[in-house]
């Protein structure tokens, strides 16, 4: 389905995740964050940049990865993206949430 975020029309799935990463801009990310009641700071964007890097290399995201990222520790990660940090951070980053095979 289509949705208007920061004056840009993007395609999202039922849960609100972008289905086409090429439509993502920082403004779009900001709008999604607002909907999640998260105010983005530089630290947030550093995490998003790390997530984009992993996504481009097709590496799976995990809490362990965050721990080893050097960007942030896990407690901070939970503080920045409260209540399911991976699923919220991926939504803001415009990439699919971590999934299993069904």
């Amino acid at each position: 389905m289509e949705k208007k975020l920061a004056k840009i029309t993007v395609n999202v799935n039922e849960e609100g995740y972008l289905t086409d990463f090429s439509q993502w801009t920082k403004e779009v990310g900001n709008e999604i964050a607002k909907e999640q009641e998260i105010e983005m700071t530089n630290k947030h964007w550093e995490v998003i940049a790390y997530i984009h890097e992993k996504f481009k290399n097709e590496e799976p995201l995990s809490i362990r990865g965050i721990k080893k990222s050097g960007v942030i520790n896990i407690k901070e990660f939970y503080q920045l993206f409260p209540g399911g940090p991976l699923k919220k951070a991926t939504m803001i980053a415009g990439i699919p949430k971590p999934k299993s095979c069904i």
Binding site: N13, E14, L86, K97
Partner: peptide
Amino acid sequence: PLDGAFTKPKA
């Protein structure tokens, strides 16, 4: 650790 026992929409 995922957001459900099932994670894909159709499943």
